[in-house]
Amino acid sequence: MVTRVTPDLSVQLGRLHLAYPTLMGSGCYGSGIEYAPFVDLARIGAVVLKSVTRQPRLGNPTPRLVHTPAGMLNAIGLQNPGIAWYLEHDVAKYADRPCAMVGSVAGFSIDDYAYVCERLAARAEIDAIELNISCPNVASEGETFACDPALTAKVVRAARATTDKTLIVKLSPNVTDIAAVAREAEAAGADALAVINTVRGMAIDVEAWRPRLGNVTGGLSGAAIRPIAVLAVYEVARAVRIPIVGQGGIETVTDALEFFLAGASAISIGTANFTDPRTPERIVAGLSEYLQRRNLTRIGAIVGRANRGFANRQEYEGDQG
């Protein structure tokens, strides 16, 4: 007999309860309100806001975007008004928020992260914090944190000490062993991990003989990086017990399912919003339909179900000789 109850798509990330397992990726959804004319924000889980830093930043020189096969490169450079102005002018508009608002913190020193995290998390309008320790588009230090397990531990511990709100740590794929970084973030007190940030890349103008981005290098996003992201989630899921927000090139419900099955408890949608802002609604509808078809009552039932570890020696033996 097939039951036709509406499946439970809600997800718990630390203390943060989301009605839907869909987050909108930081830097892709602005201040959260730019998409309000096109999307019912009450039908998404959370908006991860654009990263804010201690000091204001003008951002990178142009061009900041290049379209690439099945994706795009960006190098925005954390343009933002700085935490003081942000708290005074921007945060209040989230008082009547239709979905959860996750503040994103970026910085250049451990003290920066703690300073901004403490002030942002203190605001009632902000439901959780994401630590962006993996922005590939700012000079050196930005991504250094997520590329070094010991530095990751330090910065997470410092931010953890400032708030009890859910702390999501966004990891970089531009590392040799993402699981090692993930373990340190968990041990230092992260409530959840965002896996992954963009993949470093570049494009060159062959007529002008120069890089096409003003910043020279950028972060690659879109379908082009999806298999990289699926593997990263799979590896991290084997290394930690805290929930994972899977992200990287998710465009369809099938893409989203790959991430849940790899071990993500929630997903984040970024670049696909640039193609069609109705993508999150479609994915939520598709997840519901998928769970009903398989007679499952909640999204949690599929998390990590394809995660069988890695092929061992015995599994290879059949191919020997």
């Binding site: 730019e34 004319p37 960006n74 925005i76």
Partner: peptide
């Protein structure tokens, strides 16, 4: 060159 076209990505 645009990505979002609605002011979200800068």
């Amino acid at each position: 060159t645009f990505a979002c076209g609605v002011g979200g990505c800068w």
